[in-house]
């Protein structure tokens, strides 16, 4: 990895995205959330092919167009310009969410505010009185897509744990997350709770335990 943060302890955003990309099987239909999850598309392993779904009505989404080639009527769920690859299809919103809710999408990678040890996800609202609530397609995605991966920093900017015993923010879904990629570790959500799958370079199991707000089991 040629990332400038290579020598630092832990994984960078790009490295977390690369790890997630490596866990997606060849031929998967994938929906990427807005933010860090979008980076996953840059790290498709050699020899694998993913089909990207964007909930605003495109299957077979390609990369960002060249400057000057943007089409305001060809965008992704984050409302950014994208391209359509050969073999792509357009469809209306009810069909798009039939793909999602009907279990036809294999993997969705999302960001998180909090994840609990039983896989509850909170990623749409801080619940503050003054906040404008906005949910988009997140609640449909977590219920319908077969595997929900989360990419997030292990702690908030102020050092609070994002992996917790029980979410304090309003939930997006109950028991929906299967795997979490943080800057410190890859962590699976198992029937026994959080379990380390892989530690980042220079990070000890003890540090992960200390920075997690719920019990964590060592790698099996």
């Amino acid at each position: 990895m040629s990332d400038s943060t290579e020598m630092k302890k832990g994984w960078s955003r790009n490295q977390m995205a690369e790890l997630a990309a490596h866990d997606i099987p060849d031929g998967s239909c994938v929906n990427l959330g807005i933010g860090i999850p979008e980076l996953v598309a840059q790290y498709v392993p050699e020899g694998r092919e993913f089909l990207y779904h964007t909930e605003n009505g495109l299957l077979g989404m390609g990369p960002t167009p060249e400057s000057g080639e943007e089409d305001p009527e060809l965008i992704n769920a984050g409302k950014k310009p994208v391209t359509a690859l050969p073999g792509a299809s357009y469809f209306h919103h009810a069909d798009s969410f039939a793909m999602i809710r009907g279990g036809h999408i294999d993997v969705c990678v999302l960001g998180a505010m909090q994840v609990s040890g039983n896989g509850d996800l909170a990623n749409w609202s801080t619940g503050e009185v003054d906040a404008i609530p906005a949910v988009g397609g997140a609640m449909d995605l977590v219920q319908g897509v077969k595997n929900i991966f989360v990419i997030t920093t292990h702690c908030t900017k102020t050092g609070d744990a994002k992996l917790v015993e029980a979410c304090t923010y309003p939930l997006t879904g109950v028991g929906v997350v299967s795997r979490i990629y943080t800057d410190l570790a890859v962590i699976d959500v198992t029937p026994e709770g959080f379990r380390v799958n892989k530690l980042a370079p220079g990070v000890s199991f003890e540090e992960v335990v200390e920075k997690t707000g719920a019990p964590v089991l060592p790698a099996a």
């Binding site: 919103h93 798009s96 969410f97 809710r101 449909d140 309003p170 997006t172 879904g173």
Partner: peptide, 28 residues
């Protein structure tokens, strides 16, 4: 939620007064 919004609209046009969805279960 976006998928529920789409399906409520589709149902409205298709003469289906209500439907059941897993979306939002256990949330506010």
């Amino acid at each position: 939620p976006q998928g529920t919004l789409a399906e409520r609209i589709r149902a409205g046009g298709a003469g289906i007064p209500a439907f059941y969805t897993p979306t939002t279960v256990g949330t506010p």
